[in-house]
């Protein structure tokens, strides 16, 4: 999840990113931002926060918990706005999407 500082929604994006870092993938024990699961957050609709994200594997039994966690986290920081979570499978998540911080947390090489 990359944030461009000249984006008109930079402040919201930082707020969203901080909130989403509280959502942990219970299988991998790393937050979903550092895992690279969050592809983007859209604030163009004032009544809505639209998250585009993926899961590490389709049919993951933890998928429901993770998407619920995303809604919980964003409802807390953006009260009154509808939270929409759009799961996509393209691009397919792979290990190269994990940030350096995420890799360090997982003890990867």
């Amino acid at each position: 999840m990359e944030i461009e500082l000249n984006s008109p929604f930079a402040a919201e994006l930082v707020k969203a990113q901080t909130a989403l870092m509280q959502v942990i993938d219970p299988e991998l024990y790393v937050n979903i931002v550092d895992l690279g699961l969050v592809y983007g957050v859209d604030f163009t609709n004032e009544a809505k926060v639209k998250v585009t994200m993926t899961l590490s594997t389709p049919g993951c039994p933890m998928g429901d918990a993770i998407t619920g966690g995303v809604k919980n986290a964003l409802e807390t920081v953006f009260p009154g706005r509808e939270i929409e979570v759009n799961i996509v499978w393209e691009p397919r998540w792979n290990y190269h999407m994990i940030t350096d911080e995420g890799k360090a947390q997982m003890g990867l090489e």
Binding site: Q22, V23, P61, M62, G68, N72
Partner: peptide
């Protein structure tokens, strides 16, 4: 995971 999911799924992102 199945036990965790039934107890904590609705709380993720809200509290630790």
């Amino acid at each position: 995971f199945i036990v965790w999911s039934s107890h904590y799924r609705h709380l993720t992102g809200k509290v630790k």
